Simulated scan of single mutants.
Amino acid sequence: MDPELAGLASVAAATVVQLLTTAGWERAQTSMGALWRRVYPDRADTVESELEESRAVLLAAREGADDPAEVEQAEAELVGEWQGRLRRLLAAEPDLAAELRRILTDDLGSEPPGRGRDEPSMRVSVRALDSSRVYVAGRDQHITEEGGR
């Protein structure tokens, strides 16, 4: 998949999941339903229902979690799930990318300050435990480790 489309799917999924527990969740649900309705009208109602289910899962996680990591895990799983759906949709219908960008900017208000409309953004959360290493890059990353590591 085109890296730009993959990035767009990632941003859109994170934005939609973030909105699920806010007053803007219905706007996200309607916008995603409208996106699917453009090419798969028979699936749009299902997508809207699945967003409602995702919202219920996230609300339950927030209410029942003793550890904030549990909520983060639930959010990450939902972002991954919706990212996969959006990637498949964009892979099948790449022309929807412009509409998804419009939805993000106009309907969901996720355009970061100082960014252009056509430049996707990304939020990354990383947690390293014990002696693990984490490498994060927004573009190319080259790592050379010496000494048997």
Rank of each mutant, 00 (worst) to 15 (best):
V71G: 01
S54G: 03
D67T: 00
R37W: 04
G109E: 14
D2T: 09
R27L: 04
A98H: 08
E75W: 11
A61K: 02
R43N: 10
L129Y: 09
S110M: 08
I143T: 08
A98F: 08
V126Y: 03
V134A: 15
E50V: 05
G138N: 11
I143P: 02
A34E: 12
A13V: 04
P113H: 10
T46S: 07
A69W: 14
A65M: 02
L51T: 06
R127P: 09
V47D: 02
L8W: 04
R149A: 11
R102Q: 08
A13T: 01
T21W: 02
S31M: 01
R27D: 07
Q83K: 15
L96I: 09
L129F: 14
V57Y: 11
G80T: 08
P68V: 06
A44C: 00
L59E: 08
D95L: 08
R139D: 08
R117S: 05
A28M: 04
S125K: 09
E53M: 12
H142G: 13
E52L: 13
L96E: 03
G84H: 06
R139P: 12
V134E: 12
E72N: 13
A98T: 11
L8N: 00
S132F: 03
R101E: 12
L104A: 03
E81A: 15
R117P: 08
A92C: 08
A34I: 06
R43S: 08
R101G: 06
W25K: 09
E72I: 09
R117G: 02
Q141C: 12
D66H: 14
A28L: 03
A28N: 01
T46Q: 13
S121Y: 13
Q73D: 13
S121K: 10
G148K: 11
A76C: 03
Q83H: 06
Q29G: 04
L100M: 04
L96K: 01
R85D: 04
A92N: 10
S131C: 12
L86T: 01
R102N: 09
G138S: 09
R117D: 01
L96A: 02
E81I: 11
P3C: 06
V17Y: 00
L19I: 06
D107H: 01
E81F: 10
G7S: 07
D45A: 15
P68D: 00
A92I: 06
V39F: 05
D66Q: 15
L104N: 07
D106R: 00
R133E: 11
A12K: 00
P120W: 01
L108W: 00
G7P: 01
E77N: 09
W36S: 06
A14N: 05
D107K: 00
E145H: 13
G64H: 12
L108N: 02
A97V: 15
S125V: 14
S10V: 03
S131R: 12
E81D: 12
R123K: 15
D2G: 00
W25P: 02
E70I: 00
Q29D: 07
L8R: 02
P94H: 00
A23T: 12
T144A: 13
A74H: 07
T46W: 09
A137D: 05
G147H: 07
S49F: 15
Q18T: 10
V79Y: 00
A92W: 10
R149K: 14
V124L: 04
G80R: 03
R102S: 14
E52K: 11
S132W: 01
A12L: 03
D66R: 13
E26K: 05
L96S: 01
V136S: 01
Y40I: 07
R117C: 03
